[in-house]
Simulated scan of single mutants.
Amino acid sequence: MNKVTQPLRKRIQTAAIKKTSTPVVIYIAVGLAIVIAIAIKPLHEELSLNLTSEMIAVAFIIFVVNILLVNSKNKQWKIVSNRMDYLIARNVNQIRDGVATFALGFNPELKKDLPVDQAMTEMRSQRDLHLEQWEALSQDDFAERIADKLFQDEQLEYFNHRAEQLWSLLNMKYSEYLAPELVSHLMDLHIQLSDLCAHIRSFKKASWFIEDSFYYQESGRRGAAHNLRTIIGLVSRLKEEGYSEIPRMPEIGQDS
């Protein structure tokens, strides 16, 4: 029977910081000092004993300080981890929404009499289906069906802002404690968003170079299609791992 694997977000919440940033070379230096102190015992027994006892005391102090630092960092991380998770999940959700709306023409059909929470749930469900349908397209069909408004200044600014937001999160204090797998996904997402912006700029060059406009439009559109397909895969994976959440509102919970 296959084990049920918890989403990455849940696994991170239960994990603890197990080491500090104390360089390994310090431990090596203390160990070598103890070895040298023992080695000179035949030459000067009293000096050897003094040095050995002092080095052992130093090693003990470093050990105790490390334990205190680890405990302190764990307490700090527990305080900020939920907020970090929310910031990441909110950004991922906004990227999903931006891709679906600005690039893939998502336009939900909602009943007018639905309560707000039900309407939001229905909209997210329709958006998920919309993204799945786009993922199933061939590369050529995907490129041809991208909404033209993706290549406008407003969308370029939007996706560039999303890329900058991700980069800010990756460079935020305490981000070093994020799971490497999560950091890898976020870095890939940042790269794809940045490349998407580059391809939008390439498409827009068509208005500058009229004779070669087809080349710039075609290369920009196909490049954007590649980036968008990859972005959809990344945000879908992050959502599965628990990182997709709408801006918090009363009675409206996590995007799932």
Rank of each mutant, 00 (worst) to 15 (best):
N2E: 15
T5Y: 06
L8F: 08
L8M: 05
R9Q: 01
I12E: 10
A15L: 13
T22V: 01
V24N: 02
V25Y: 10
I26A: 10
A33Q: 04
I40A: 03
L43M: 09
H44T: 05
E45M: 06
L47W: 07
L49S: 10
T52Q: 02
S53F: 06
I61P: 06
I62F: 07
V65W: 03
N71F: 02
S72H: 07
N74P: 03
K78R: 07
N82E: 14
R83E: 13
D85A: 14
Y86E: 09
Y86N: 01
Y86W: 04
N93A: 15
I95V: 02
V99M: 11
A100D: 03
T101S: 05
A103F: 01
D113H: 09
P115N: 15
D117Y: 13
A119I: 14
M120L: 15
R124V: 15
E132L: 11
A136K: 15
L137G: 05
S138M: 09
Q139W: 04
D140Q: 11
F142Q: 05
A143V: 11
A147N: 13
K149D: 15
E154P: 02
F159I: 14
F159A: 11
N160Y: 11
H161T: 00
E164R: 11
E164N: 12
N171V: 07
S175K: 01
E176T: 09
V183M: 10
H185Y: 02
L186F: 01
M187F: 11
L189N: 00
S194H: 04
D195A: 13
C197W: 00
A198Y: 06
S202I: 09
K204Y: 02
K204L: 06
E211N: 13
D212Y: 08
F214P: 00
Y215C: 03
Y216K: 03
R222C: 04
A224H: 03
A225G: 10
H226T: 15
G233N: 13
S236G: 07
S236C: 00
E240G: 06
S244Q: 08
S244I: 08
P247L: 07
M249K: 11
E251H: 06
